[in-house]
């Protein structure tokens, strides 16, 4: 894993790192300030862009950079870009990549909060970059963006997701039934369907798991997302595999590691009440013992 440093810490990467990307115009020294096209002036309200147009403003993005081919440690770089009222953190990152430094690396796909590619830490809080509007942040200060914590950093804002998906796969996240299949659909009442609705919303972005202090210190912990996906089946009236899943989550790295810190619920971009779901799994385990 790339070294962890607090925001604001300069990490001296040395000048040798600059050679390999000489054409990039992005010397990888710490705290280098870059200005985007049209955005070189200090931060200010720029008024509107044309009649009835959208207000524009300058914003400084302070990004945690790490290139495994050049750097020994992560470092910080600042970029100032001109953005608009409906722009999101992802738009700012895309603009920096397009206009200032093509080496900036992050994952993104749907760009409206559905695919779960772009979970990152924005001003110390896990969020989806595509769902975080710049105007909702305090842009009088640099917007600090770093990779989610607890997973190995691969490059810039990209982390290795495999440990996260491995934990997900372990909880048997699929419908388990016994006996012959019905010819038509299985019948499920509306209240039974409603029972697990909240946890069906999960997009596996890892914002919750990587916000959990227990997960940071113990990477073996299943983490909130895996428990959410177990919950989705444990409370599905059609499923007959609950005992197996509860047994897995009764493990020492299972549901009892949760310390009810609520970081996960706050981080979830889908508004899932994760801490509640975990509590319900704990209750199911206690009820089973009785």
């Amino acid at each position: 894993m790339a070294g962890e440093k607090e925001p604001g810490t300069r990490s001296a990467t040395g000048e040798e790192g600059g050679e390999g990307i000489a054409t990039s115009g992005a010397a990888p020294s710490s705290d280098y300030d870059h200005a985007g096209k049209g955005g070189a002036s200090p931060r200010q309200e720029k008024g509107t862009d044309g009649a009835g147009g959208i207000p524009s403003f300058d914003v400084t993005m302070r990004l945690r950079r790490y290139n495994p081919e050049l750097d020994t440690e992560p470092h910080w770089e600042n970029y100032t870009v001109t953005m608009y009222g409906t722009d999101r953190v992802l738009d700012a990152l895309s603009k920096i990549k397009a206009e200032i430094d093509g080496t900036l690396t992050f994952r993104r796909s749907c760009a409206h909060g559905i695919c779960g590619s772009d979970a990152m830490r924005v001003n110390g809080r896990n969020r989806l970059a595509c769902k975080t509007l710049l105007k909702d942040l305090d842009i009088s200060k640099p917007v600090v963006v770093e990779p989610i914590k607890g997973l190995p950093v691969e490059k810039d804002l990209v982390v290795d997701m495999e440990p996260f998906f491995a934990a997900y796969r372990e909880v048997m996240p699929f419908l388990i039934t016994r006996g012959a299949e019905p010819t038509r659909e299985r019948v499920q009442s509306q209240p039974d369907r409603e029972r697990f609705d909240d946890t069906t919303k999960c997009i596996l972005c890892a914002a919750c798991t990587s916000s959990c202090p227990v997960f940071w210190t113990d990477g073996q912990y299943f983490g909130p997302a895996a428990i959410v996906n177990a919950h989705r089946f444990i409370f599905d009236s059609r499923d007959q595999g609950s005992d197996l899943r509860l047994e897995i989550l009764n493990d020492r790295e299972g549901v009892w590691r949760c310390r009810t810190i609520f970081n996960c619920s706050e981080a979830c971009p889908r508004g899932i009440q994760i801490t509640k779901a975990i509590a319900e799994v704990k209750q199911a385990l206690i009820a089973r013992k009785l």
Binding site: F174, L175, E181, P182, R184, E185, R186, V187, Q188, S189, Q190, D192, R193, F196, D197, T200, F233, D236, R238, D239
Partner: peptide, 20 residues
């Protein structure tokens, strides 16, 4: 195709009778 998905576990919304 719809019934296959339901059998795989897809949580369709339900009618008052519990059908899709």
């Amino acid at each position: 195709a719809v019934l296959d998905l339901e059998k795989m576990g897809l949580p369709f919304n339900r009618t008052p009778e519990g059908r899709i």
